[in-house]
Amino acid sequence: MSSTPTPRAASSYALDAAPAQRLPTRRRWFMLSLLLVATIINYVDRVNISIAAPFMAKDLGLDKVEMGLIFSAFAWTYALALVPAGFIADRFGSRLTYGVSLISWSAVTVAQGLASGFASLFGLRLAVGAMEAPAFPANSRAVTVWFPARERGMASSIYVCGQYLGTALFTGALLWLATTYDWRHVFYSTGIVGIVFGVVWLFLYRDPLNCKKVSKEELAYIENGGGLVKSSQERTRFDWRQVAELFRYRQVWAICLGKFASTSALYFF
């Protein structure tokens, strides 16, 4: 018997093997562009205080110890809130979690421009850290549901670029604002941009099964490639024992130690 596939079978095989660029839609890349912009805003709102600091310290009479506490306040609440933030992202989805987080931290950023002394700035930086914590869990979740496994590494690397693009692109502009007007305008401008984009995010972002502009072919491509399309509709019960389970793996310890070292150097410099 001949092993040559029938025309119908060959056509079906060709459709299944079609590369991503031939799909009727490429909606996943649009969603990734939203993640990139959100990550840029996320990091600009983390580091804008570095631009404002010399002017702020002089205006408010803050010494170096007080400035050190203000700088570190963000990391305290950010670290504490990350695990609960991951649960929130899984429970409520990337659209709502990221949208609320983005608008909230941006509103607090605007409020930093109204600060009158150490106590208010310290409290507001604590709030920024807590409000930004859901951002990267929501990023990771969005990439997991929108991209097949073969594209997930590249997709993650693209939105992670936002960490450095924001600093590279906007440091000069923020310094100009601080010198031309005053340090408060650094927080006003970055906060307002974040609030506006938060509304845009809520309007445009959707998970795959809720997106009307994604084709069936693209959905099949994502799901067949290992994308967790249907998990965006599922609700799984969280158990703190799952966190303890992670630390049984050497790979997790290696990632944590590597991240600790790289982040320490990054924030120091």
Rank of each mutant, 00 (worst) to 15 (best):
A85V: 10
E66S: 14
S94V: 08
K58T: 11
F55L: 03
G61C: 07
V108D: 01
A107E: 02
A81Q: 03
T77N: 00
F74M: 04
T77E: 02
G117N: 04
T97C: 10
D63W: 01
W76D: 00
G86T: 09
V108Q: 01
L96H: 05
V108I: 15
A89L: 06
A119G: 06
G68T: 13
T97S: 14
T77Y: 01
S94R: 05
S72G: 14
A57E: 05
G93N: 00
E66K: 11
I49L: 15
L82E: 15
A85C: 09
S106T: 02
M56D: 01
V108C: 03
L62I: 07
L96N: 10
G68C: 11
L96M: 12
P84D: 10
D90I: 01
S116E: 10
T77F: 03
G117C: 06
T109Q: 12
S116P: 02
G117V: 05
I49E: 12
S94E: 12
R95F: 01
T97H: 09
Y98C: 07
R95M: 04
K64S: 13
G117R: 04
L69N: 14
F87C: 04
I51G: 08
A52W: 07
L102W: 00
A85P: 10
Q112Y: 05
L102V: 04
D63M: 03
D90V: 02
M67L: 15
T77V: 00
L60N: 04
P84H: 07
I70K: 07
A111W: 06
F87T: 14
V83D: 04
L69W: 12
L114R: 06
S72F: 13
A119M: 09
A111P: 07
T97R: 06
W76L: 08
Q112C: 14
A89E: 09
A53C: 08
S50C: 11
S50T: 14
A73Q: 03
A107I: 15
G68H: 10
S106V: 03
R91K: 15
K58A: 12
R95N: 06
I103Q: 00
